[in-house]
Design a binder for these strands. Structure first.
Lengths: 199, 199
DNA sequence: TGTACATCAGTGAACGCGCGTTCACTGATGTAC
DNA sequence: TGTACATCAGTGAACGCGCGTTCACTGATGTAC
């Protein structure tokens, strides 16, 4: 442990540290898989700054956690969007979106857990999460409009689909030792049975 | 706060305290909705004993948490069994079992969360949980055998159903402020679409 | 060109807290002789 | 019947730890005159 004093960022570049802090928090949350377990002091150690320096950018621990979650969420949405954009038709786009999100969740299981299960929700809302719901609903609606899925209430179908998909991801993350069936096949069954996609 | 010394249980009745401790732990876990947040000292305070007295019955904090989870799980299974036993046919039994478990989860949301999402899993297995899986699979199989659901692999169908149901309960518990559709209707859609029950 | 000063980025010591666990102990009750 | 002793149920003080947050501070860099 080198106890050297950090060389301050150049004037006007103070925000660089904010980014480093959020990046470290995201990495640690992925490992911890629990927002309550993330300590401000541990993040500061990771970035090699004094614990008090975190307060230069965040009013308290919760604000730091929220900033980390928000960054994750944006990445998760972007991952889904990119996959959907590359697909040929609405059904392929919906499937690609779901598969991409599932892959992200399995890759960053700790973050997925924090994003969906953490109790920061109880203290502050996480309004940015509604984007995900809207995207899925829109994707389902497009399938119906293109005649690729039986006409139905898109919002309800989307909720059922998201519910099942979340359940699947959560179970696999929370009880990784159980003998789960192949993920893609299970997702395809949900798409077929819940949305009515012909795969 | 009366600081009176507890009158010891009669000789041979030391196990009574164990029961009190587990009961308090269960109650507190339901409120906390997080096993990591349960402190041995807080449980001791709740029971009005010295923190050290917990060690008369449990080797460490984790053992206490596990004992609490086990008791919950038994209650959850029993709730499902009783509901299923009162039903007229296998389809009604499966539906009654699912509805009863969902009701229990909504009534004891903190415990449900701990049971499914806690990280005690990571440290110790919770073998007693396999009972739930077996019960659901058996219930699905009976529906198929009675011709009340299309013949299929009962284990796979049961996993899909449990996945969706868990997802539904988890979402509602974790994000109670979102506008969820009526629970029973959503469960019935899962039973109809995933199992093939005619309701 | 020199210098006083404001500003910015970051530090270090200290606070009070609750935690899990350990240790040696207490005090009532039953039992062997 | 009396008494020494073992056993059982539970206690209290102490340990070292990491935590979030507060406070007054440092030291380099740019800027006004």
């Amino acid at each position: 442990m080198e106890e050297t004093r950090r060389r301050p960022n150049a004037r006007g570049q103070g925000e660089l540290l904010r980014d480093e802090i959020v990046t470290a928090a995201v990495r640690m949350l992925d490992e911890l898989a629990d927002d309550e377990a993330l300590s401000l002091r541990a993040v500061a150690r990771e970035v090699s700054i004094a614990a008090t320096s975190v307060y230069l950018h965040f009013p308290d621990r919760d604000a730091l956690v929220l900033a980390a979650m928000q960054r994750c969420h944006e990445e998760l949405v972007r991952t889904g969007d990119e996959a959907a954009d590359a697909a040929a038709d609405p059904a392929a786009a919906l499937r690609a979106r779901i598969l991409a999100q599932a892959a992200w969740a399995q890759e960053h299981s700790g973050l997925y857990k924090v994003l969906h299960e953490s109790k920061v929700h109880r203290r502050h809302g996480m309004p940015f999460k509604e984007v995900m719901v809207a995207r899925t609903t829109e994707a389902v609606r497009r399938c119906m409009e293109a005649g690729l899925a039986p006409a139905d209430d898109a919002a309800t179908v989307a909720i059922d689909l998201r519910t099942a998909v979340n359940g699947m991801l959560a179970q696999r993350i929370n009880e990784p030792d159980l003998p789960w069936p192949p993920a893609v096949e299970q997702l395809d069954r949900f798409l077929a049975k819940l949305v009515g996609l012909r795969l």
